[in-house]
């Protein structure tokens, strides 16, 4: 029961094109799992399936103990999701965004009100409660978006390039939020194009052309590939990709 994500022979075809090709792996409770790959390797397709938004062509996966083929509504209540492109509504205030998303994730009104104040205090955002999200600096937005994604205490949170374009100091603060979240027992499934961030994960996988070509702890991968950086390993694996396109 320690495994929060179990993927077995997961495959997704679009017509003659196999976007995700028979992948299998597990992710443990409270683990920070880095999901790397070149553009077009199939990462987004996998995440969409694990979030219950798209059905596999063959194979299956359990997320939080629920089957992605038949229990997608249960999955949606037990995961959080945040991406760089879509995170919060710019024209709503900070507290309105929290209320909206907490409601969507099925939280009770009373719980939302109490937890909102606790969250704002934790983030040091008390004075920004009434601020429109559009007026927040990007780094703050990303921290808030992340907090909103785990507000309902999901089993897994999916982060799709959460730190793209964020300044170097805030990027590191963001990772400290990730560590804290994992310590609470929430599994973090994260994609990134910053290879230094790959080193902060407990384990990482590297996807090439729809398949997982490497999966282990950063240290073990560096030993296996006789390399001193994940950047170098990524380059070794991904430059041979046949498809570089989404």
């Amino acid at each position: 029961m320690d495994e929060v994500i179990v993927v077995r022979n997961l495959t997704k075809r679009f017509g003659a094109f196999t976007a995700v090709d028979d992948i299998s792996f597990e992710v443990k409770k409270g683990e920070i799992f880095g999901f790397l790959g070149a553009n077009g390797a199939g990462k987004t397709t996998v995440i969409r399936m694990l979030c219950g938004l798209s059905k596999p062509s063959s194979g299956n996966a359990l997320v939080g103990g629920f089957d992605i083929r038949h229990q997608s509504e249960k999955i949606k209540a037990n995961i959080g999701y945040m991406s760089q492109r879509f995170s919060l509504y710019e024209d709503l205030k900070v507290w309105e965004n929290i209320k909206l998303f907490a409601g969507i994730y099925g939280m009770k009104k009373k719980d939302i009100a109490i937890k909102t104040d606790i969250l704002l205090e934790e983030l040091g955002f008390e004075s920004q409660k009434e601020t429109l999200v559009s007026a927040l600096p990007l780094g703050w937005k990303q921290k808030l978006a992340f907090s909103v994604a785990i507000f309902h205490n999901p089993k897994v949170v999916f982060l799709d390039e959460p730190t793209g374009g964020v300044d170097p100091v805030v990027r590191r603060q963001f990772w400290e939020l990730i560590y804290k979240t994992a310590e609470k027992g929430i599994t973090v499934f994260v994609t990134t194009h910053y290879m230094d961030e790959a080193e902060y994960c407990d384990r990482i996988s590297i996807m090439v052309d729809g398949r997982i070509e490497a999966l282990d702890t950063p240290r073990a991968l560096k030993e296996k590939f006789s390399s001193d950086s994940i950047d170098d390993i990524f380059y070794q694996l991904a430059r041979n990709a046949k498809r570089k396109e989404d």
């Binding site: 070149a38 553009n39 760089q84 793209g164 374009g165 194009h193 990524f234 380059y235 991904a238 990709a241």
Partner: peptide, 13 residues
């Protein structure tokens, strides 16, 4: 203007 934002490390190179 930011030609490589969101682009993977290999394509960036």
């Amino acid at each position: 203007d930011e030609p490589t934002t969101g682009v993977d490390p290999v394509s960036r190179k």
